[in-house]
Design a binder for these strands. Structure first.
Lengths: 189, 189
DNA sequence: GAAGTAATACTCCACATGGAATATTTCGCG
DNA sequence: CGCGAAATATTCCATGTGGAGTATTACTTC
């Protein structure tokens, strides 16, 4: 069984679905397009991912070129299997919800290790932090809105609603703690 | 610099903060308490995490016991540094939002690789899947409500609002695609 | 009481990640 | 024209994860 395509592998295949590229070019395009807000891209993982995809025949080296006196680089193109794999991964990634064990629920579940005032302080700081992220994201979306069709910034729109939702839940929870509607009674105190 | 505590490391420290335990006992407690819904727990990672924490002096072996003729197991207890590290990790984990690059935004961003009807099909299936998760979670929360104070199931409550929020965003987006308010115009078609 | 199955208690390893380091080349500036 | 900084294009490796495997003991059922 071939393992599931990782997020970075999806991005690589999607890039090569547009046109052939070499690894460093992918890196640049991902950076300039701000895709690094959505996929984690490190040089090490990128090169490793490209090699892995090549080993799986999902992409194929088309030759090594060189411009000027720079080191030669290998250009890759997507294969038919690669295109199919990309499509299938996008389909399954959308159609089924898979829990990815984010950190926040874990620290929330262990927040009873803090005393009430400390917890409230941290919660309020998170609200402030979320507000910053929301402002930044709204800015980015306003800019994107003028440049590309909405279809291409759905992810940003999704993220904004999720952040706003978390912010609201936090605000409500803080108030419920303050009004003792949600009493803070750790066992070990 | 010591690396940040992983989610599983947080859980291990939190358990040992209650009482000393050996690794397999932690495994059982995490399973029976349903904590595996929130932290990813595999035998391999658990034992490795315990050894790592011991190496970092955040926990300490108190001796090896044996019950019956079973293999002996090492019992661990939390150290002062461990307790401090736990508290700090919970504090920072709450007070600052850190993006963790979930899969869904990535596949959303690449959903233009599917045609309109296919995408709509997958979106609708996700809504159905989310409804299942929501029903299950609501059940679990109703049960928890009767057994432990709300402080101990905040994570579940948080998760429910996030899931509901995603569901609503999806429903809206599906409708916007259907009514052409959000036109589906991939470049390569 | 034999045989199968579940629980106990780990161990091992392949693999993806991500931080850091490296070497060369081109560009900007005085 | 020379020097430093930035861009180019990778490689390397320590680390955490997670799937699978293993060996022993206890429990159950015929």
């Amino acid at each position: 069984m071939m393992a599931e395509l990782t997020p970075l592998a999806i991005s690589v295949l999607a890039l090569l679905n547009e046109r052939p590229m070499h690894a460093y070019e992918m890196y640049q395009v991902l950076l300039t397009r701000q895709d690094t807000r959505i996929v984690k891209v490190r040089p090490g993982s990128l090169y490793h991912t490209v090699e892995r995809l090549a080993g799986q025949q999902l992409i194929r080296a088309t030759g090594t070129e060189r411009s000027g006196n720079r080191p030669e680089r290998t250009t890759y193109e997507i294969t038919c299997e690669g295109d199919e794999a990309l499509r299938r991964r996008v389909q399954t990634g959308i159609e089924s919800y898979v829990y990815e064990y984010p950190l926040f629920p874990v620290v929330l579940a262990e927040s009873h290790n803090l005393d009430e005032q400390d917890a409230l302080l941290r919660f309020r700081r998170r609200v402030a932090d979320l507000d910053n992220w929301l402002a930044e994201l709204s800015d980015a979306l306003a800019t994107a809105q003028e440049q590309v069709p909405e279809l291409y910034w759905m992810a940003g729109d999704y993220l904004r609603t999720q952040l706003a939702c978390e912010r609201d839940w936090l605000a409500t929870t803080i108030e419920r703690i303050e009004t003792k509607d949600l009493p803070w009674q750790p066992r070990n105190m």
